[in-house]
């Protein structure tokens, strides 16, 4: 005890263990602390976590197969065997809700991830090098933004006959990179004029090092916030496209597909248990992701006004 106390005193620079004993808060830890103060965002994290865990552990929660059809049990009301009844093909709605959550979350996350990769890469190149490269990338982004997203995606989906999850994610990522690219480029343009970047060039740091060690850590706030919000958007996009029949094709279960099955006045009226749960699942997931995004924005940018 006594020795512990003594060694924690700042006796001088020659006392080597000292710098392990003092805990200094990194800028990231400070942001984490600010995030924890936002109750709504913290609750949202737990809600989203719960949804993810439930979707992952789908086989443990239901013994039904989400794809297997049963022509003798079509549009059944809830029973002990089928907690949320069955759909028009006799597939179990509860199993489809859980397994569909997996697909919706995977689509949202991987589309976000690929958009992020494209956006960070192109945004970094455009913002760092400027000049001609910047012009080319930004004009490309302008053209992409000019095309109406929905019409473009619908056309692509219509041309391709077999849409897989991978293809769906690729199409979304390839059509929605411009927004993120522009945000990252704009952040870089302001960072580029900062003296610490000149300082890094003065020691002879390579472009790659400057981008990865100096630009990205300083732009991480906008990047993470936008990525989070993007994920919510993509879950909605997937649901919306599935609803109008241009998303992930049946019989793969997704939340959007489940709602699209309710495009029928009879089901709407008589079987609310078939379409309310997936609707609520989308609502709660997207809402909690958005709250998390808001929380992250406030955490990374303490100067932003909180209403």
């Amino acid at each position: 005890m006594h020795t512990n106390l003594e060694s924690s005193l700042p006796t001088g620079p020659e006392n080597a263990p000292i710098d392990q004993q003092y805990q200094h808060k990194t800028p990231f830890q400070l942001a984490y602390q600010r995030f924890l103060k936002n109750k709504l965002a913290v609750v949202s994290v737990f809600v989203l976590l719960a949804i993810v865990i439930v979707c992952i552990s789908a086989p443990l929660l239901t013994s039904q197969d989400p794809i297997e059809t049963d022509v003798f049990n079509i549009e059944k009301s809830p029973t002990d065997e089928h907690i949320l009844g069955t759909n028009g093909q006799g597939q179990d709605n509860f199993a489809r809700l859980l397994y569909g959550g997996r697909i919706s979350l995977i689509v949202g996350f991987s589309a976000m991830f690929f958009t992020l990769v494209i956006g960070v890469l192109l945004g970094s190149i455009a913002g760092y090098y400027g000049g001609k490269v910047d012009s080319i990338i930004m004009r490309g982004a302008d053209i992409m933004l000019m095309l109406p997203f929905l019409v473009l995606v619908l056309t692509i989906m219509a041309v391709i006959d077999k849409v897989t999850i991978g293809l769906f994610v690729t199409i979304i990522a390839l059509t929605s990179w411009p927004n993120l690219t522009r945000i990252i480029r704009a952040t870089y343009l302001s960072l580029r004029e900062q003296e610490f970047v000149l300082g890094a060039r003065a020691i002879g740091a390579s472009d790659v090092r400057i981008i990865f060690k100096h630009f990205i850590p300083n732009a991480i706030g906008p990047i993470i916030v936008n990525a989070t919000l993007m994920m919510a958007t993509y879950i909605i996009v997937e649901s919306g496209l599935s609803f109008i029949g241009f998303g992930i094709p049946q019989p793969t279960p997704t939340w959007g597909n489940m709602i699209s099955e309710a495009q029928n006045i009879r089901i709407l009226r008589d079987h609310p248990e078939a379409w309310i749960p997936p609707g609520l699942a989308i609502l709660i997931t997207v809402l909690s992701i958005n709250f998390i995004g808001d929380g992250l924005r406030d955490a990374f940018n303490p100067k932003s006004n909180r209403r």
Binding site: P27, E195, L198, G199, A202, H214, N218
Partner: peptide, 16 residues
């Protein structure tokens, strides 16, 4: 080497 004027802008705040 160079030492800059503004001690708040010349050090990357994300590095120890």
């Amino acid at each position: 080497q160079i030492v800059f004027q503004d001690p708040f802008a010349s050090l990357n705040s994300k590095m120890s």
